[in-house]
Design a binder for these strands. Structure first.
Lengths: 172, 172
DNA sequence: GCCATTTAGTTCATGTATGAAATATCTACT
DNA sequence: AGTAGATATTTCATACATGAACTAAATGGC
């Protein structure tokens, strides 16, 4: 379940965590809560998508290509945050299923353009709104204000990692 | 990079998103910010761990087993949030490296107890505090109050998925 | 015009992640 | 006791994820 270092313990403590260490890591509860929120979302979304017959990554690709004339794999990678090496396989499988086609770009022969086939567009129209609606049911439990507040919290955490913070205070 | 349905687009929009759909999904920015925060953490933590010679999952297991007499794979799975089927392979690899040992439990012969070997404990002592310190440098940029605030926000998001919300309002 | 350097994609080796199905053991209840 | 059902772990098939190395094509500088 894509658990991450330090973040994983489902209850309140890290077993291998001695008191001396613990006092140095007051951030653990924050990380844990973030991972749990993320995993809860992933599980809920993924379960529903599986019932619809696509994997989360495939859905991302189809949703990103939907209503577009197609785009470069590099751009698709950037938009979906899927590594280019992973994307290769995902597109391979979607192509095998006849949902996506690879075309080449006249202006730059290094590029490969991916676009939905008619079958892919049909799938997009069939699956996309339903999944959005499904997920909406969960998020509608929160007001717009609350959502904005949560969003700011996530953005704050993201910002923590934008640059190297330098040495640990009190050491080095 | 474990991107998730709907959440993935790195800029502000979902390409395949028509105006009619978009108005129904005001939650997308929240999801996107969550995924980005999560990924930023995973990348930062994972890169450092790789330099230390362990994978994030392996670190989680070693960190959870550290300073304990060992525990059941089921319990380890629960604490690390790693699926039992995934855990089998992770423990296999750690065992091959001589860091973890599988023993059996007298009271219940179905169970397998995993515990650190001396080499595993040595690794734990060597890697764990360093990684905690490393991650602390990032989180120290936020005050304790800010962290608590973010944590509350994340717990709210997690709570959204705790039960089925029922049908979409306005439909069904 | 040629070469060193970037850039776009693929390939590769390895390590998870998923759910479903198979095994083995334990537990409850008749 | 004896069997149905619950639990713990493994196995299996499939799909990603990672970084590093590789290929091919574009681009900049001289």
């Amino acid at each position: 379940m894509t658990t991450i270092a330090i973040a994983s313990n489902s209850d309140g403590d890290v077993t291998g965590y001695t008191p001396e260490n613990a006092s140095r890591a007051p951030f653990l509860p924050l990380v844990r809560s973030m991972v749990r929120a993320y995993q809860a979302f992933v599980e809920t979304s993924g379960r529903h998508l599986r019932d619809l017959g696509v994997t989360p990554s495939q859905f991302d690709v189809v949703a990103t290509l939907g209503n577009t004339p197609g785009m470069t794999l590099g751009e698709l990678s950037g938009r979906t945050l899927i590594t280019k090496s992973a994307l290769t396989g995902i597109i391979d499988r979607l192509e095998r299923q006849g949902l996506v086609a690879r075309c080449d770009k006249a202006s730059d022969r290094r590029c490969v353009v991916a676009r939905l086939t008619p079958a892919g567009e049909a799938l997009f129209r069939e699956v996309f709104p339903g999944h959005v609606d499904y997920m909406s049911r969960f998020f509608n439990r929160m007001s717009a204000e609350e959502q904005a507040e949560c969003r700011r919290a996530f953005e704050k955490v993201e910002a923590l990692f934008e640059a190297d913070p330098g040495p640990v205070p009190g050491e080095e």
